[in-house]
Design a protein around this nucleic acid. Structure first.
Length: 829
DNA sequence: TCATACCCCATTTTT
DNA sequence: TGGGGTATGA
């Protein structure tokens, strides 16, 4: 779809010379309708893949062409990625126009810098990230003296967050009586706010909350901004919460040229305070609104779209939409059952490898979506085993790593001496003999005096409870701080270099950090330094420490998603919003996961879960598979899984439904079977409509499926992209073997590999039951050599063996599924 | 004060 | 499974 957009040439010229033809041609009537609407409220209901971004960007170009000044336009998004995309595409149509484009949070952060004093902050205020606010919250809970026995800090946090999103003040929250956690939260809330203010800091919610209150309480500021930003656009309007709603509304009173785009069917952030009513009631809020519906889909095949459409029709709270497409027919959507999560992971990895080797796909074409991050683990394993390059969008992010957070905390403290969270982080990092007791005493003094902790540290001599030694240590920390502070105005690079040097941070890392395979702390420090250099380069004039910190605070994990590198993408369904992929797997479409068990009680939440699946489905361009497993192991133990109720809502007649026929006794190596044989009798929700409701193998689908098995292609590995060759070079030979067709259809492609001797290989091939390992067996471990199994416990992937390698030595314990154990003598006892 | 060990906890989604 | 918090010992 992007290819279509790019082909719009326009003359380079002075001022705002924009090729009108490029802006309006090749638009559908509906799109043109939206693009050419300049004044007055505008509601764009945009289905998935309907060219929404195209409309928004073209509309901005059109307005500029019509004489709207660029600084009168602000386009608000939810993610930096969306903003970047928009900026890039507007720039193609109308280069170098200072139209404000960015996230809500960034917008508010910038406005708050200017009006900081209105809400009791200074303009160098800090933005707490999640970890920061969590630790601030703990302190507030302590200070408020409430017990956490009835409400965890997380619950309190979330209650306060919700309150802020709904613009509820600490005072008004106390008057409301609600659940126990709310009552507790109401007591913590004012303390937490007070401490934030004292630290000259805000959390994420505060950015919106403070700014919304600022607008409400200061009519002159409101009027000023309303007049300046005459044209406001909001993307993903269905995800706005009350605070955002209030902000946007307040700036669109005198000049109600508010244009919002969104899709009620893609609202998946209700739990974060997003209020679907904002978009559902937009037409009530602005009676003379122009509404445009973009219903034609340019992304997906009709097959995929039909599945999405059928599903979402089951929602009640929506604006009905006709999704249609002119795209040619594609493959049927696959609904697939697996024995368990491991088989699911292996089979998907096999399928990806097979499709790649078939020669018509590369890693970047694939995405695997799941409800929870925890579910990506087995996928990771399977992909890694096959040498398939992948990326997890929500992995450990750079700015969350310890080293980086440490250095950042120093910078925060330099920028804002009241940043208590930062101080607590760095005061003993690297360790300088200022332990918890000392910090606790400093904190108490600070709390009593209502001063920042750094100030308390400066006045350490007045704190009687501190030992002489502690006082000395604290004093030396303060003098270190003063030295650092003097460098605050130098370039970021110099500051960071000096900081690392002066704190002897590298030496600290060297003696404390343990080497891990996938992260090198010292490299991270270098990387952080590079980020600083880069920032200096990008901001030669306005580059301040403060700006850098703000930038860092407002980037998120999802923004880090790179489509430039050629990898299979693993992400949550939430993170997938706004993206598209040629081939998509949605895994674990099971009851209690999707819908999540905590969302099943409430109809509105249940509908949100359905929308979540809808979002996942509509990301797919050509090919889609939904899957569920019979069993799933979660947090250690294995549970029977039930297919999601949503699956019964799909048009299965038009899909390929494939059941798993893998051997049932795969895990049944100890004789007793705790898994029900009556799986197929698990009841579906009672049918409400016509159509078959039970799961059954689609007999017609199977031959077709085996016909689709890839042909061997000796040169396939050569065709793998070079950028990933390092990790791909070890594609196992099994992929070079054609899968055999069997009389009894088996879902798994069983590789014809040579000898399978280690248990983990057996595990992944499911050829030999783990039962081959018995007590008394002799096995060989690559490191420990030969030994005897003395005890076997657990089942399936948790099957564990105790092995004695030599008499007198303690036994070692291994998971059969993972240890590289070779069976030397199976005769055993 | 620090580091290690252990135990127990809870387990959704994130700007 | 694992991360975080706490108990314990050096």
């Amino acid at each position: 779809m992007t290819a279509v957009f790019r082909s719009c040439p326009f003359p380079a010229g002075s001022g705002i010379l924009i090729d009108m033809d490029a802006i309006t041609k090749n638009l559908t009537p509906a799109q043109a309708d939206a693009v050419t609407h300049v004044d007055g409220p505008l509601l764009i209901i945009a289905g998935p893949g309907s060219g929404k971004t195209r409309v928004v960007t073209h509309r901005i170009a059109y307005m500029l062409n019509q004489g709207v000044r660029p600084w009168q336009i602000a386009a608000l998004t939810f993610t930096n990625k969306a903003a970047d995309e928009m900026r890039m595409r507007v720039n193609l149509l109308a280069p170098d126009q200072p139209v404000w484009m960015g996230t809500f949070h960034r917008f508010c952060a910038q406005q708050l810098r200017r009006y900081a004093s209105f809400v009791g902050l200074s303009e160098n205020y800090s933005i707490y990230d999640m970890a920061d606010s969590r630790s601030a919250m703990k302190r507030a809970i302590q200070a408020a003296g409430v017990s956490t026995s009835h409400a965890t800090p997380e619950q309190i946090s979330s209650a306060i967050s919700k309150a802020k999103n709904r613009l509820i003040t600490p005072e008004s929250m106390q008057q409301q009586s609600g659940r126990a956690s709310d009552t507790v939260a109401a007591r913590v809330y004012p303390v937490y706010q007070e401490q934030l203010l004292l630290a000259n800091a805000v959390d994420f919610d505060d950015l919106l909350y403070h700014f919304a209150r600022l607008l409400r309480e200061n009519p002159e500021v409101r009027g000023e901004l309303d007049a300046k930003l005459k044209y406001i656009m909001v993307d993903e309007y269905q995800d706005t919460n009350l605070a955002q709603y209030a902000i946007v509304r307040a700036m669109s009173v005198d000049h109600p040229n508010l244009a919002v785009t969104g899709d009620p069917d893609q609202s998946i952030y209700g739990w974060r305070g997003a209020d679907l009513n904002n978009i559902l009631d937009f037409e009530k809020d602005y009676p003379n609104v122009k509404t445009v519906r973009l219903e034609q889909n340019y992304r997906s095949t009709p097959n995929i779209l039909a599945v999405a459409d059928q599903l979402i029709r089951h929602n009640r709270r929506r604006k009905s939409k006709e999704l249609f497409t002119d795209n040619p027919d594609g493959d049927n959507v696959i609904l697939r059952q697996y024995q368990d999560g491991y088989e699911e992971a292996d089979a998907i990895a096999d399928e990806i490898a097979a499709q790649m080797i078939a020669g018509n796909a590369e890693p970047r074409d694939f995405a695997i979506f799941c409800r929870m991050n925890a579910l990506t683990r087995s996928l990771e394993h399977a992909l890694r085993n096959r040498g398939l390059p992948y990326q997890i969008v929500n992995g450990v992010e750079f700015y969350q790593r310890k080293e980086v957070k440490d250095l950042l905390a120093y910078l925060h403290l330099i920028n804002n001496p009241s940043h208590d969270v930062a101080l607590q982080r760095v005061i003993n990092t690297p360790t300088r003999s200022i332990g918890a007791t000392t910090v606790g005493r400093l904190q108490k003094f600070a709390d009593d005096q209502r001063i920042p902790m750094l100030e308390a540290a400066r006045r350490a001599d007045e704190i009687d409870t501190l030992s002489k030694r502690s006082k000395t240590m604290v004093r030396s920390f303060v003098s270190l701080y003063e030295r650092l502070r003097k460098k605050a105005t130098e370039s970021l690079e110099d500051l960071v270099r000096y900081l690392v040097e002066e704190t002897k941070y590298i030496a600290f890392l060297e003696r404390t950090s343990v080497e891990k395979e996938d992260s090198n702390p010292i490299e991270n420090v270098d990387e952080f330094l590079s980020a600083a250099v880069e920032f200096d380069r990008m901001h030669p004039e306005d580059g301040s420490l403060e700006a850098f910190l703000e930038q860092v605070a407002l980037v998120s994990d999802t923004d880090k998603f790179e489509d430039s590198n050629n990898r299979v993408t693993l992400m949550t369904l939430h993170a997938a919003k706004g993206l598209e992929f040629p081939r998509v797997f949605v895994i674990a479409v099971e009851d209690d996961l999707l819908p999540h068990y905590r969302s099943k009680q409430d109809d509105q939440q249940l509908e949100e879960e359905r929308r979540l699946l809808f979002v996942g489905i509509t990301r797919a361009k050509q090919w889609l598979q939904l899957s569920y497993a019979k069993r799933r192991s979660m947090r250690g133990d294995i549970r029977v899984a039930i297919p999601s109720m949503f699956l019964s809502e799909l048009p299965r007649a038009d899909m390929n439904v494939i059941e798993s026929f893998a051997d049932r006794d795969f895990f049944d190596d100890s004789g007793d079977d705790s898994y029900p044989d009556s799986w197929d009798l698990v009841q579906e929700p009672a049918p409400e409509e016509e159509g078959e409701m039970e799961y059954k193998a689609d007999a017609a689908a199977e031959p077709e499926e085996s016909a689709k098995q890839p042909k061997p292609s000796p040169s396939a590995v050569d065709r793998l992209p070079s950028t990933v060759s390092d990790s791909v070079s070890v594609i196992p030979d099994v992929y070079m073997d054609p899968p055999t067709s069997k009389s009894k259809p088996k879902q798994r492609v069983v590789p014809i590999a040579a000898a399978l001797t280690t248990a983990s290989e057996m595990m992944s091939s499911d050829r030999v039951p783990l039962g081959a390992y018995r007590e008394g067996c002799t096995v060989r471990h690559p490191e420990y050599g030969e030994g005897t199994i003395t005890e076997l416990t657990g089942r399936g992937p948790k099957r564990t063996a105790k092995i004695r390698f030599s008499d007198g030595e303690p036994e070692q314990t291994f998971r059969l599924a993972f240890a590289k154990l070779e069976l030397v003598d199976a005769s055993g006892a």
